[in-house]
């Protein structure tokens, strides 16, 4: 692989890594707060993609004018984010909250169950086939130093990075953020209290909102969506969260970028069939030497926002 090809693959990897990072933050926030792997997160994101598809199909007639196209994408990302946030809150309220005192495997199995239910909702909503996402820039490409940059990929970065910056400000600079970080240290006993319940609900909402934005970014990047997309995206994002150190927001973002880059380069070097295996192989080897992940602290769970 020459330098230009390598950089090209890095560009593709970073683009996909950014929205995987958004999803990974969702996993890590929920885990850091209630100690639960929210297995249905990928499918919540998939449903966000379905809503975004419906909005964009309605708002983006061909030929597309870039400015209105961008506004439509921003609107779709906001709506999708709100939808996924509310859906996540509902899932927590009706599925996870009654199981706060249950053995750890109960919410885990419920989460898997919710995942399958949502997948079937997606199947009914958009049907079994791949659905084309409206093209915002009609494959406009710019060449920089021999590297082709798709305008659509720049749009992916443009809608993915601001929510991450907002999250940083929210967690670091606001009272709400400090409360959210402190809730990470709560015990099972206090998790049922009113204040903790609200903060947990807020965590699920933020997690879902970021997932909704990620779904739009993923749709623009892949140019299609389907009702099974949440499964593999969810796996990659969960890997990113664990690789970065589950419970750590910066870790999830870095993990997402690492997974995106690894995947892109594996596809180029080993072929697409081995991409997933190679990403997980790296995860296994890395965790063998650093079980807590890149940003995680050893022997702790959560509390590192």
């Amino acid at each position: 692989m020459d330098v230009a090809s390598f950089l090209q693959q890095c560009g593709i990897g970073i683009t996909s890594g950014v929205f995987l990072g958004l999803m990974a933050v969702g996993y890590t926030l929920v885990y850091g707060t209630v100690g639960l792997i929210h297995f249905a997160h990928g499918d919540v994101v998939m449903l966000g993609g379905c809503l975004a598809l419906a909005i964009l199909s309605f708002l983006v007639p061909l030929p597309v004018v870039p400015l209105t196209g961008c506004l439509a994408v921003i609107l779709a990302a906001m709506c999708s984010g709100l939808f996924c946030g509310c859906l996540n809150v509902c899932i927590d309220r009706f599925v996870y909250r009654p199981l706060r005192d249950a053995p750890p495997l109960s919410p885990l199995v419920s989460a898997i169950g919710v995942s399958f239910v949502l997948m079937n909702v997606g199947l009914v909503w958009i049907g079994p086939t791949d659905r084309a996402f409206p093209k915002i820039f009609l494959d406009t490409t710019h060449s920089v130093g021999g590297i082709s940059i798709l305008m659509a990929d720049l749009l992916v970065l443009a809608i993915s990075v601001p929510p991450l910056l907002c999250l940083y400000v929210l967690l670091r600079q606001t009272r709400f953020g400090r409360s959210l970080r402190s809730i990470a240290a709560i015990t099972r006993a206090t998790a049922r209290s009113g204040e903790a319940g609200k903060l947990i609900g807020a965590t699920f909402f933020i997690s879902g909102f970021l997932g909704g934005v990620a779904s739009v970014a993923a749709g623009i990047h892949a140019t299609t969506i389907n009702y099974q997309m949440g499964h593999q995206m969810g796996l990659y994002a969960l890997t990113a969260a664990v690789l970065g150190g589950i419970g750590s927001v910066p870790g999830a973002i870095v993990g997402g970028l690492v997974v995106g880059l690894l995947r892109a380069i594996s596809v180029a070097v080993l072929g697409p069939r081995w991409a997933m295996a190679s990403v997980f192989l790296v995860l296994i080897v890395f965790l063998a030497f650093r079980p807590q992940g890149i940003y995680g602290k050893s022997k702790t769970r959560g509390g590192q926002h």
Binding site: S5, Q8, H221, H231, M233, A268, G271, P272, R273
Partner: peptide
């Protein structure tokens, strides 16, 4: 080359 039929997209592969 065999692809992964579960993959969301093949942008990297198409470059190859």
């Amino acid at each position: 080359v065999s692809i992964d039929p579960q993959a969301a997209e093949f942008k990297s592969f198409v470059r190859s």
